Simulated assay, not measured.
Amino acid sequence: MPNMTNTLTIGRLAKAADVNVETIRFYQRRGLIPEPERPPGGVRRYGVNDVERLTFIKTAQQLGFSLNEIGDLLCLEDGAHCQEASIIAEHKLQSVREKIDRLGRIEKVLSEMVARCQVHQGDITCPMIASLYEGFRESGPYTG
């Protein structure tokens, strides 16, 4: 007897999960979403579990997880691997904190450049453009 919960075509699944059909196919090729069997002469059908999995993938992407990391998390979803999932999340958190730190340094340098431009007068070279030609000094955003 066919599973009555699997009633969505790929188009309806895409609409329910607010993604493109090609996104679903891409995720299937990556092994993130299972591709259901096609019944003889029929159309593949998807269900609520597939919508939930797509929601999981989209939410994880919004948090900055790569598709490889998402695949790793999906392999751990049975509830018995909380420690491993936590380690993946801790690495992501550390990466986010490092990005925030770099962005803070970039913001500081850009703020200083803008301030120099606002006090700039005369026919000399623009201080901001000159700074970019000179490169970032020790206080630049990419130094440790």
Rank of each mutant, 00 (worst) to 15 (best):
M1C: 08
P2Y: 01
N6W: 00
N6D: 14
T7Y: 10
L8N: 04
T9A: 03
I10Q: 06
I10N: 04
R12W: 00
L13A: 04
K15A: 15
K15C: 00
V21D: 02
E22M: 09
E22D: 15
R25D: 05
R25V: 01
Q28M: 08
R29I: 00
R30F: 01
R30P: 02
E35I: 02
R38F: 01
P39A: 11
P40V: 09
G41L: 01
G42I: 02
R44Q: 08
R45L: 15
N49G: 15
D50P: 05
V51S: 07
E52C: 07
R53Y: 04
R53W: 03
L54I: 06
T59C: 12
A60S: 14
Q61S: 10
Q61F: 04
Q62W: 00
G64D: 08
S66R: 10
L67S: 06
N68E: 14
N68F: 01
E69Y: 03
I70L: 07
I70Y: 04
E77K: 13
E84C: 00
I88E: 05
I88C: 07
L93W: 07
R97G: 00
K99E: 12
I100E: 08
D101H: 13
G104H: 09
I106C: 03
I106D: 00
E107F: 01
E107L: 10
M113A: 11
M113Q: 12
M113I: 06
A115E: 15
R116W: 09
R116M: 13
C117D: 08
H120N: 12
Q121V: 14
D123C: 06
D123T: 10
I124A: 14
C126N: 10
I129V: 15
A130K: 15
A130N: 12
S131F: 10
S131L: 02
R137W: 00
S139C: 01
P141H: 02
P141N: 04
Y142L: 15
T143C: 09
